[in-house]
Design a protein around this nucleic acid. Structure first.
Lengths: 338, 338
DNA sequence: GAAAATTCGGAAACCGATTTCGGTAAAGCC
DNA sequence: GGCTTTACCGAAATCGGTTTCCGAATTTTC
């Protein structure tokens, strides 16, 4: 049984008393301030560790007006894209001693506003607004956040003076197309998603770029656009394959599209990848379970989250946020469909 | 241009001045304290909303010693089980005005300890320790958390005086087996996971219970145990089907096991579900993409997270935490394999 | 109508740290 | 040896709220 009961919350006063100094001195020691003799420094440290003292972050924050806390509001805590991004920001944050509040707005402005209020009340040092859906352009947050550093994650914005980090979809389109061409396919079809998604243009642009670099003329009849659905992929693959000179490779702008295309190809008795190579996009979990397992262009979700966190931390440290869109490279995951 | 520039951080002093009362009165109004005349109450409210005043939660917390903040430490922010649970606790928390810090320990004690320190420093009101893996028994947290309310989520504990919430695996085993029996299968095989996982015993127990209720004698030769791997499911399904009187249904204690079993069944030229009905467990995303799509027993992850959050909030409110394991019912997702 | 109870609002202490500022002692300078 | 500079430490103010306590005004009670 210990001689003295350990008071549960041990304050700076307690260690000051034990070390026979003033609280201010203890504070200075804990913060490695100069003008403290090494003898008292030692004494204070000893007292602190003996009492197991850890400063109350709340009290500290009140004075220094920093909380080492980030807010992260996502519109989708369910989808498969969110988790790696979250992990990235969590890691970036905790590497620098920051914690992150996780909030889910369900895409509802009212909920987003409410979360923003609470986070602002709790004096977060910065905010990440993250989307779990395919990246779309978005406007201002649901309420003013004053001068609080902000970064958009997986959300595109043209106008706002806010940094946003998104995947490099043009690079991904290029990467996939170039890979297909490298496999000696010169007639590569492209099944795209709806044109009101920014990334469909980017991915197509990458496709054209790879074609042009390889000296292959661009053939508009090889481009099909549908919705982000398996049935679209199925129908459009049929259209492509009934062309007088059908493609020997199909690049789909999403894995669902590719899954549909795969069905169509099977139905036509075509072998994948021998007769036509198939490539998806997004690296959705199910793509590994197709027959054959689908090659696909992966979104760099973890890296995006990490970058978003680091940008935010930098903005907080610097006191200035540099707007602009930050694109992080997609990468290829090779399986057996091409 | 507004007459008076809005000072960015508006404090209780500001509204006191505008309303011509003391700060204490403002505080009382904001907290709906009694003994305030309705006239001054109105006046203060008007001033507050005119200045757009929101109390600084940090300052408040310092005094009241509550932060309306929860900590959530998971050992796995990647796996597929974590997200629905997180969403559950986030929702339970935000419903009551609480925020939650998300931390990832990667299963490393050092990281967990570090996160615990930070969370304790930040004065969280309670803590959820969550696992993203299959539920296993676990010991005390990586460091003492004093009297802080705690709940284990998807982690089992026998000894600690801490509530833990886990899926009702016995119920799930019962549910699946009963369903198979209801389909007129009387010879149902059971492919289980390693015996050092608590839930394998539970699931098997549910299986036995359903059998016994249906008056079907328990046949130990129908029980196989392997590892949580597809290859195990494959091998053990082969063993089962080479019995003199093979089963007409197989219940696997995980979806990976079931995927392997499905391969074996296909290889044997058996039709699923006509010749042998197949049922998985866990409702992993890939189970929907098997051929045929796998029926499975789903873990009530969201509900578990939600319950964990609610238990924690209740413990915080009551000041007392009631230990015990809380099992939440699994449910069946019917697809086409049975 | 006096005494007691109640209502209302403010002054001041407080939460637990940080930071400024001033004073003393020691060291450096000529 | 006297003067200036520097090193070291502590008293007190501060961050932005909450809470206790007290006094004045009003109402109730008898």
């Amino acid at each position: 049984m210990p001689i003295e009961e350990k008071k549960i919350p041990v304050t700076i006063q307690d260690v000051a008393q034990l070390a026979n100094v003033s609280p201010s001195t203890v504070s200075k020691v804990m913060n490695d301030a100069p003008h403290i003799s090494s003898s008292t420094r030692e004494r204070v440290r000893a007292a602190a560790s003996k009492l197991n003292f850890r400063p109350n972050a709340i009290a500290r924050s009140l004075k220094v007006k920093r909380t080492a806390t980030l807010g992260l509001i996502t519109n989708d805590l369910e989808g498969v894209f969110t988790m790696p991004m979250m992990r990235g920001v969590e890691e970036a944050a905790s590497n620098q001693g920051f914690s992150v509040f996780m909030c889910n707005s369900y895409g509802e402005a009212a909920r987003e506003k409410n979360h923003l209020e609470v986070l602002l009340d709790k004096q977060v040092d910065g905010l990440i607004l993250m989307s779990g859906y395919k990246v779309r352009e978005r406007g201002a947050p649901a309420m003013s956040v004053g001068t609080l550093p902000l970064v958009y994650l997986y959300q595109y914005t043209r106008d706002l003076a806010v940094p946003c980090v998104i995947p490099d979809d043009q690079g991904g389109g290029y990467l996939g197309t170039a890979h297909l061409i490298g496999l000696n396919r010169r007639r590569v079809g492209f099944i795209n998603g709806p044109t009101d998604f920014e990334q469909t243009h980017q991915r197509l642009e990458g496709y054209r770029q790879a074609l042009s670099e390889a000296g292959i003329p661009f053939d508009p009849t090889f481009i099909k656009v549908g919705r982000w659905e398996e049935s679209s992929g199925y129908a459009l693959a049929h259209e492509l394959m009934s062309l007088p000179q059908p493609p020997d490779a199909i690049f789909c702008a999403s894995d669902s599209l590719a899954a549909g295309a795969l069905d169509a190809l099977h139905q036509l008795g075509l072998r994948v990848p021998e007769d036509v190579a198939l490539l998806g996009y997004d690296n959705r979990p199910f793509s590994a379970f197709q027959r054959p397992p689908l090659s696909t262009i992966a979104l760099p979700l973890y890296e995006m989250g990490r970058l978003a966190g680091e940008l935010l931390l930098k903005a907080i440290a610097a006191g200035t946020t540099q707007a602009g869109v930050h694109k992080v490279p997609c990468y290829m995951v090779k399986r057996q469909s091409c």
